[in-house]
């Protein structure tokens, strides 16, 4: 599977981690790899040695991960994290979610979309990937309740 091509110019916000996700603002996807022998997915990308103890493959293809999943758990960052996190003053607390991807059978962390009320969340809710800027303007992936 090929990742969508990324076109950048000086007006496009820069990703916090280049190559970790597509810059498609409407349907963003995380970019991982998949072992061509045993099918195990990796995020972040792994391109060296497959970690499945029964697989000695060193061959990987880049894949875009499922952009929807179900909420596994969630929390908040109520205190300002230390560097290299970059925060505005005053610090605005944010949410963090762990989302299970069905096809990949893995759980991926990310901030919750700005404005998500933790009190409305329930484990098992459908979630989708969105792009939002961090406090320093760099784009990152975040998890948002589907339909929110």
């Amino acid at each position: 599977m090929n990742a969508p091509t990324q076109q950048q110019d000086t007006t496009t916000p820069q990703p916090v981690l280049p190559g970790w996700f597509t810059l498609d603002v409407k349907q963003p996807q995380l970019l991982g790899t998949r072992c061509t022998a045993c099918g195990t997915y990796y995020f972040p990308k792994l391109t060296t040695y497959c970690r499945n103890p029964d697989c000695d493959s060193e061959s990987f293809e880049e894949v875009a991960l499922s952009r929807t999943g179900t909420l596994w758990s969630y929390t908040s960052a109520s205190y300002q994290p230390p560097e290299p996190y970059i925060a505005n003053t005053p610090f605005q607390p944010f949410g963090i979610a762990a989302v299970e991807l069905e096809r990949e059978r893995m759980t991926v962390l990310g901030q919750l979309a700005t404005g998500t009320d933790l009190g409305t969340l329930k484990v098992g809710m459908p979630m989708e990937l969105v792009l939002e800027p961090l406090d320093d303007g760099k784009l990152t992936w975040k998890w948002r309740v589907v339909g929110a």
Partner: peptide, 27 residues
């Protein structure tokens, strides 16, 4: 470095403990 990455995204040690704790509450 995964340790650098998670702090860059604002994920601290208590984040993990809290995710496990919330999971217990829900399950």
């Amino acid at each position: 470095d995964p340790d650098w990455v998670r702090f860059r995204l604002g994920i601290t040690n208590p984040t993990y403990f809290a995710l496990y704790a919330r999971r217990r509450m829900e399950m």
